[in-house]
């Protein structure tokens, strides 16, 4: 870990949605708290705070993590992607677009986490033959109470198409 300890605070370097950041942070904070409280990135949600629901999913060096149980200091030297960074130049990402078109969004509280889970899944499986069961398994860490997952499945299938 870079940076020095100072009263339980430490300095870290990371990139957040492509922007390099140098941050002086409370070592006790979770990545979720860092994003929501310190960086104002409130798109990422908390549904349980203990790694059970996936609402807080973000990508750290392209790996999907539950940011509520990922310490903020661990992102030192790493790249974070959150839902706020996915739409660029006024255009939704293909995954976001597919969620909108397929009716995969209802209350929307699970949506930011699901968008990141699907983004990670789709990027990993681009151009491959993927079964519905693989999609289900790839999203098993994200809970949704509104959709029955049915239209989310359709949205992921759509985003896998070239």
């Amino acid at each position: 870990m870079t940076g020095q300890n100072d009263n339980g605070f430490t300095r870290i370097q990371c990139t957040v949605n492509g922007v390099p950041r140098s941050l002086f942070i409370d070592v006790r904070k979770s990545l979720l708290e860092l994003l929501r409280q310190d960086l104002g990135l409130t798109g990422t949600k908390e549904g349980c705070g203990v790694g059970e629901c996936g609402a807080c999913s973000v990508l750290v060096d392209e790996v999907l993590v539950d940011s509520c149980i990922y310490l903020a200091v661990w992102v030192d030297g790493k790249a974070i992607r959150t839902v706020e960074g996915e739409a660029r130049d006024g255009r939704l990402s293909p995954v976001q677009q597919a969620y909108v078109e397929e009716g995969a969004v209802q209350c929307g509280f699970c949506t930011p986490g699901f968008i990141m889970a699907s983004t990670s899944f789709v990027e990993k499986h681009q151009g491959q033959e993927v079964s519905a069961d693989q999609i289900r398994k790839g999203h098993a860490g994200n809970l949704c109470r509104c959709t029955g997952y049915q239209n989310i499945l359709k949205a992921v299938e759509k985003s896998l198409k070239p």
Binding site: L41, E84, V105
Partner: peptide
């Protein structure tokens, strides 16, 4: 498309 879909997928 639902009125709030874009607001929700972008966080």
């Amino acid at each position: 498309i639902r009125t709030d879909a874009v607001a929700k997928v972008t966080g």
